[in-house]
């Protein structure tokens, strides 16, 4: 086994070159490059962590904005509903007023017409009494030859009308 049989002759060279190569490896690669690579990885990880935190903050901010928007929308909807109701009430009231005014006008006009009808009726009735009295006077004159005055005839007609 050369590892053991040669050890006395080669240990110095082995150790010497190992210390040189491993020393170079440690100082150039281990201390120099690996430190930088680890720093790069750490920087990337902290950047990722920062970005994630920023994204989380932005998400929370968006949630808050949405909540505020929702509240605002709710308030606007309530206000709009109130406005609608008020307008509806106002419209109903004004319609009622108009209807009442129209009713009153109609009633007034009906009243006028009723009065005119009543006048015409009374006038007609008065004419009717005069006609009836004259007819009664002539009937009496033709049947009995008795001359009665118009006033008497009219009086009789009134009595008959009153007693039916």
């Amino acid at each position: 086994m050369p590892q053991i049989s040669q050890i006395a002759a080669t240990y110095a060279s082995q150790i010497f070159w190992l210390l040189i190569t491993f020393g170079l490896l440690y100082f150039v690669v281990g201390r120099g490059m690996v430190t930088k690579i680890v720093a790069t990885v750490d920087a990337r990880e902290s950047r990722i962590a920062g970005d994630l935190a920023a994204a989380e903050a932005a998400r929370l901010q968006a949630d808050r904005t949405e909540e505020a928007w929702r509240v605002e929308m709710e308030a606007a909807r309530t206000a709009a509903a109130a406005d609608t109701n008020a307008a509806k009430v106002q419209a109903t009231q004004s319609a009622e007023l108009q209807v009442k005014a129209a009713d009153a006008e109609l009633a007034e006009r009906l009243g006028h017409h009723d009065l005119a009808i009543a006048n015409a009726k009374a006038e007609a009735l008065a004419n009717l009494e005069t006609v009836a009295a004259e007819v009664a006077q002539q009937l009496v004159a033709k049947l009995s030859g008795v001359q009665v005055s118009v006033d008497q005839a009219a009086h009789a007609v009134r009595e008959v009308r009153a007693h039916g």
């Binding site: 002759a9 060279s13 082995q14 070159w17 190992l18 190569t21 690996v34």
Partner: peptide, 23 residues
């Protein structure tokens, strides 16, 4: 001390060189 550049030393250097290239 015998500090000859042996085949062992050569392969140590090859190891170091390939590692440096890789890094």
């Amino acid at each position: 001390y015998d500090l000859s550049f042996t085949n062992s030393a050569l392969w140590m250097v090859v190891t170091l060189a390939s590692l440096v290239v890789f890094m």
